[in-house]
């Protein structure tokens, strides 16, 4: 499978990365090189093979359902580019 510039722009939109016309052209070539490389996986017979879900056979650890953390609003917003009274500030999303 290979991608065209239009697909690259659509994927960039899905990934929320702004791309210029020039970027999209360059990325099309690069992405096709990588997709061409991974194509060889199709020659592997995977009938009856389960997809891998865990590298070591183990049960997901569960913890007690108790509060162990919290009251850290100031810490949580400390690194944000824009905040007000422990809220994250973003551009207006509703008119």
């Amino acid at each position: 499978m290979s991608v065209d510039v239009k697909t690259v722009k659509r994927v960039a939109r899905l990934a929320r990365i702004a791309v210029s016309e020039e970027d999209a052209e360059r990325m099309t070539g690069e992405l096709n090189a990588i997709l061409g490389f991974v194509e060889q996986l199709n020659e592997v017979d995977v009938s009856g093979v389960e997809p891998m879900t865990s590298v070591t056979p183990m049960d997901m650890k569960k913890r007690q359902d108790v509060v162990t953390d919290g009251n850290k609003a100031a810490d949580i917003v400390a690194n944000a580019p824009a905040t007000e009274e422990n809220f994250f500030l973003v551009p207006k999303v509703v008119e």
Binding site: L41, E50, P51, M52
Partner: peptide, 10 residues
């Protein structure tokens, strides 16, 4: 497909 191949590698 990749996750299945991964199982074969393992």
């Amino acid at each position: 497909q990749a996750q299945k191949v991964r199982n074969l590698i393992k």
